[in-house]
């Protein structure tokens, strides 16, 4: 078991023939992911990476039966791509694009609530189910099939956690990069909930950062509904107020969205909070009683 994507997922790539789309589609295919085709408007009918190219997502879905889409479309057109995927009946939409205007995301997020789909991202490293399916840009070789699920706002911090879990001998079920933008499709709480309900996942790593209230919301949910140990880290303990730290969403506005405030709430809700990102793996071993 796993969540969101597995070896049976049929994936299409939006922005397939662009340089980013091409590079990462190739990496996904090499990992064994079932990429069934791609979409580039105007290039329908062509073949790329030995897979068919379609003009529209609807054409791709009708022909291939795709149920998952990954988006590598430039920021100005990415919200449109998300809505197109939702309209065509794609169930899991993963948007990698960074830099989408907030207004576009506000409208796209509202639009997809009327469709039967889940959006992951934008501005995220994607979703990866170890040894089965890579729908994203995470380096495949650091993953090892195992029992820990990961939810993270950050790309490279996810890799850090994955690597530590692999070295701790725990491995991963699914890693979900939810993205670092102020408006994202799947919240920390929703992603944690998916993993909490996954029978193969025995523990969850939750990586957040300054800005917003998603980690606190997830923590309260975990306190009320959690059945598995959760190890948490919040990046930005040393970040100053009012400055955007790389990610559009990583900015401290008030007292509630500092790392300290989030870490305190998470601890109070029974999450194993680590101060150092270097301690994620060993703390998970402790949390599972296997140290």
């Amino acid at each position: 078991m796993s969540v969101l994507v597995n070896k049976n997922s049929k994936i299409i790539v939006q922005g397939f023939t662009g340089s980013e789309g091409t590079f990462h589609a190739q990496q996904m295919i090499e990992y064994g992911t079932n990429v069934v085709g791609g979409v580039t408007p105007g290039k329908g009918g062509q073949s790329h990476l030995d897979r068919p190219v379609f003009n529209t997502v609807a054409d791709a879905v009708n022909t291939t039966g795709a149920d998952v889409s990954i988006i590598f479309v430039p920021p100005a057109f990415a919200a449109d791509a998300i809505m197109e995927a939702a309209d065509a009946g794609i169930k899991v939409i993963v948007c990698i694009t960074e830099g989408i205007p907030t207004k576009d995301m506000m409208l796209a997020k509202e639009y997809i609530t009327t469709k039967d789909c889940r959006l992951i991202g934008p501005n995220c490293p994607g979703v990866m189910t170890a040894d089965e399916c890579k729908v994203g840009i995470m380096p495949g070789f650091i993953f090892k099939k195992g029992t820990i699920g990961i939810v993270s706002k950050s790309g490279t911090l996810t890799y850090e956690a994955v690597d530590q879990l692999t070295k701790a001998g725990l491995g991963q079920t699914t890693a979900i990069g939810i993205g670092g933008d102020p408006i994202i499709g799947t919240t920390t709480k929703e992603a944690v909930e998916l993993l909490m309900n996954d029978p193969e996942t025995e523990g969850i790593v939750m990586i957040g950062e300054i800005g917003g209230s998603m980690e606190a919301d997830a923590a309260y949910w975990i306190k009320a509904n959690g059945t598995k140990p959760v190890v948490g880290f919040i990046a930005g303990q040393t970040a100053p107020k009012g400055r955007r730290m790389g990610h559009a969403g990583a900015i401290i506005g008030g007292a509630d969205d500092t790392a300290a405030a989030k870490m305190r709430i998470m601890s109070e809700c029974g999450i194993f909070v680590v101060e150092s990102p270097a301690l994620i793996g060993e703390t998970m071993l402790k949390a599972l009683g296997r140290d």
């Binding site: 490279t156 670092g180 990586i207």
Partner: peptide, 12 residues
């Protein structure tokens, strides 16, 4: 490399 890891490195 990466905003999250950059913040994590500052914390470290």
């Amino acid at each position: 490399n990466g905003a999250g890891l950059a913040m994590g490195t500052m914390d470290l």
